[in-house]
Structures are given as structure tokens and as C-alpha cells.
Computed example of a mutant assay.
Amino acid sequence: MNSVKHVSASHVMVLYTGGTIGMQASENGLAPASGFEARMAAQLTAQPNVHVPQWTFREMSPLIDSANMTPAYWQRLREAVVDAVDIAGCDGVLVLHGTDTLAYSAAAMSFQLSGLHAPVVFTGSMLPAGVPDSDAWENVNGALQALGSGLAPGVHLYFHGELLEPTRCAKIRSFGRNPFAALNRARGGKVASALPAALDYRQPRDLVNVAVLPLFPGIGAAQLDGLIDSGVQGLVLECFGNGTGPSDNADFLASLQRARQQGVVVVAITQCHEGGVELDVYEAGSRLRSVGVLSGGGMTREAAFGKLHALLGTGLDGDEVRRWVELDICGELR
């Protein structure tokens, strides 16, 4: 098979959001710190054999531990990427991000930046730059070199020499140099011939309220009602196996039906590390479908959460949102 040749990035915008990679000691422990641009430049100057594209640096505000990441911050990040590409003329973007929610942000940006004609790479580190055995510079320099070698337009996740699809991976361990992995999730989703104009990366997005609810033995309508009554517009329902839930609980099913009637978009994904959802295989799954639950196929939690934010934030009507949930947009289903 012939590999597709992509244009090498010659001018990269580096967006620094904080995270472990740039943290320094404080009286309360490691905390995000300014000054990373100078540290990054100094380590590259000290390694003349490391060739990377020209780069410009922008420090996002506020700098955060990625445990404090929010969808509102995603909106600012999306605007920063669009400014870098469409206004500053950069042909690549590198986002430096804490690892705890990096997979969430990279997946969300995959949907928020649909149609972008430049590559965007997310990376971070498990240890701060400058400490013994840190993985910071290998990830920063490797991500810059990947952009310089040519990547497809869209969002990528780079860590420890590996490029991953953000909508197909997750952080699976809290230690070591390889915290992220591609999940063996089901594939085969249908792809539409063209995306609606509302999903184009240039279009603004509204902030929306999306939640995630994992099912557990004994879950009842009260927990579901609490989320519905909180004003959620979308809900990722983490089901058992290939899409089953407490189908003999009439109150639980009635709550799901009420969510549908109130316009809440409920998407079922699997709690399993591998596989996906097929709601019509078991009666316990088909009853969920009958009260309006949509199939998330093999989507990861991060992909389903980011997709609902993107779709609901476009202003598309409810039926269109529901239709697009089960269609592939950027590799999350196929």
C-alpha cells in the first residue's frame, strides 16, 4: 500500500495550557508555571542535531492542571487553534496539555475542528521538564518532528514516539512513559458523504451540558432522574457488555423515555475495554433502544463525550443531532 505524503509543517504554533510538563514545585506541591517558552528554546539550542520546524509560542490563560479542564476552556483552545491557522498563517499546531484529561481534550478538538486544513498534535509528559528521567523533551521534540515530517490535517495525539487517533484511545495507566493506548473498540460505523456546514471548524459553538453515567448493579431511576433534572442536554450512558442495562426496571426505562421527550440525547457505549454496543442483540439492550437511547457503537467515553459537546453546540435541531450521533465524523466509529 502506498503511504499518503502530507506537506511538512514549516511554522508551528505551540499552545501551552499548563499540565505536568511545565510544572514547578510550590508550597502545595507541583503547580503549573509560566516561563516554559524559554526552557523549551534553551533545550533545543543545546541539541543542534534536533531539527524541528520554526515555532511560535503562546501561553494560554489561565495555565491549569488538566484536572481542571472544562468545556469552556475547550472553546478558548479551539479559538486559539483557528487564530493560529487562519490568522497567523501557521501550518501546524502543537498543544501542550496535562495527561489526566489530554485524551478528552484531543477527542473533543477532533470534532470541534472538523474541516481544519492543518494538523494539530496534542502531547504532554508524565514528569515535569527538568527532573531526572523526564519524558517532557522527548515528547515535545518528537511531536515537533512529526509535524515537520508531514501529518494529515486534523487532530493527533503524540506520546513516547507513537501517534494515536484521539477518538480511538484513552489514558489507561497513571505511571510510566506510555500512559495512552489505542483501545480495541468495535468499528464499522456509517460515514456520511459530507458534513453539515454547522460542523465546520469556523463556526462558533455554544456551551452545552453533557454528563456521563456508568451503570452499576442496582442503579435505579433516582440517579438518572437527578441528571435529567440537572438540565443536561446530552448523556453518555456507559452500559454493560454490548449495550445492556436494567431493562426489567420499569421506572428506569420510564426515566430514559422522559429524557427523550425532553430532548436529552442519550448515547449508549460499553464499559468494556474492547468491543462496542449493539443494542438489538439482547432484549436488555433493545428495550433501551425502544425508549430512545442511541447506539454509540465502539466509541470511547472520551469520543462520545466530545462528540455530544460538538453536535449539541452547533445549534442543529434534535433530530439532526441524533442522526449524526450514529454517523462517523472523524474516525470515532470506523
Rank of each mutant, 00 (worst) to 15 (best):
F159W: 02
T45W: 10
N28H: 14
R58F: 00
Q24C: 09
H51V: 15
S34R: 15
P53V: 08
E138W: 10
V131R: 13
L113K: 05
W74G: 03
I87N: 13
T56V: 13
G150R: 08
T56N: 08
G19N: 07
V50E: 11
N49G: 09
T101P: 09
T101R: 01
V120N: 03
A136L: 08
P132Q: 06
R58P: 00
G92E: 08
P153E: 02
H117A: 14
T20Y: 04
A84P: 01
V81A: 00
G130D: 02
S134K: 03
P71Q: 09
Q112I: 02
A33H: 15
Q75C: 05
P62L: 01
G124P: 09
V93I: 13
L102G: 07
E27P: 09
A129V: 04
L151T: 05
A103R: 01
T99D: 09
S66V: 10
W74H: 14
Y158W: 14
G18V: 12
A25G: 04
Y73M: 13
L147H: 10
F159G: 02
D133Y: 14
D100F: 08
L77K: 03
N141C: 14
R76H: 15
V93P: 09
G92I: 00
E27T: 15
A41D: 10
S66F: 01
G148M: 01
G150S: 07
P132F: 12
N49T: 14
M23R: 09
E59S: 11
R39D: 03
Q54N: 15
F36N: 00
A46M: 02
W55D: 00
Q75I: 13
V140I: 15
V95R: 09
L94T: 07
G154E: 04
H51K: 15
V82G: 01
V50L: 11
L147A: 06
F57H: 14
G22C: 02
E162N: 11
